[in-house]
């Protein structure tokens, strides 16, 4: 933890990407996430798992045209933590600009 709203779960571009994409989409399945983030299956899966463990995102299994499909969505805790992280980033940039 870095304090001031920074969260170490977001210190990675793929995780930052997952949070960004899920914060503006109600739900997205694995393949949609993969296409937006241009990540490999294994890489994406491990970052999704890490964010799930923090309870920043959750998933639900559903059937789309009779095929099983995993849809990911952001939790309220995830929204709050991500907003705090962006705030911290912006404040840091502001403060360094002032110097």
């Amino acid at each position: 933890m870095l304090g001031n709203g920074f969260h170490k779960a977001f210190e990675n571009r793929t995780r930052l990407g997952i949070m960004s994409v899920l914060s503006v989409n109600e739900k997205l399945d694995f393949n949609a996430l993969k296409a937006y983030l241009k990540a490999t299956d294994g890489n994406l899966a491990s970052h999704l798992k890490a964010l799930e463990k923090e309870d920043f995102i959750r998933f639900e299994k559903q059937f789309v045209e009779r095929k099983p499909n995993t849809a990911y969505y952001i939790t309220q805790a995830g929204k709050d933590a991500f907003a705090a992280h962006i705030n911290a980033l912006e404040q840091l940039i502001q403060s360094q600009r002032g110097v």
Partner: peptide
């Protein structure tokens, strides 16, 4: 600081693109 700026830029781009 450059890293933070590019983080913000990446977040904005991902939100828009998706």
């Amino acid at each position: 600081n450059q890293d933070y700026i590019s983080d913000i830029a990446a977040i904005r781009m991902m939100m828009e693109r998706s």
